[in-house]
């Protein structure tokens, strides 16, 4: 399972990177989202998968999956939501102001 997950994460990273390297702002944002999915899966895979029951004491199981990566990812998901929102609004604003979403055309002047 872990090995397969590693490959899956690698694919996510590769696709995300390719999207980030394109010119369209929307594609770049899509790329970051995919990479962040990859990161979340990476963290939880590193914590060990299926090692025990869910980290809920109420269920009465004796061994639990590592809860720390889960807490980390929970934080990461919410932060990722905020950063995606900022990204979106930034690209939206820059499109409105500059009239393009092509990063190649957003080059500043020579003197900037």
């Amino acid at each position: 399972m872990e090995s397969l997950m590693s490959i899956l994460i690698g694919v996510f990273f590769a696709i995300g990177t390719y999207l980030i390297l394109t010119k369209s702002l929307l594609r770049i944002i899509l790329g970051t989202s995919i990479i962040s999915h990859g990161v979340h899966l990476l963290i939880i895979t590193m914590g060990g998968v299926k090692a025990g029951g869910p980290p809920l004491l109420g269920l009465g199981s004796t061994s639990f999956t590592d809860a720390l990566p889960q807490a980390l990812i929970l934080t990461a998901i919410v932060i990722n939501f905020a950063t995606t929102a900022i990204f979106l609004v930034l690209s939206y604003r820059s499109y409105k102001v500059l009239g393009t979403d092509d990063t190649a055309q957003m080059r500043g002047n020579e003197d900037e």
Binding site: E2, S3, M5, S6, I7, I9, G10, V11, F12, F13, A14, I15, G16, T17, Y18, L21, G38, L42, T45, M46
Partner: peptide, 16 residues
């Protein structure tokens, strides 16, 4: 991008 993917996979496998 393939390079990034391969490095991450290798990294994840080794870490595991």
């Amino acid at each position: 991008s393939i390079g990034v993917g391969v490095v991450v996979t290798l990294f994840a496998l080794s870490a595991n």
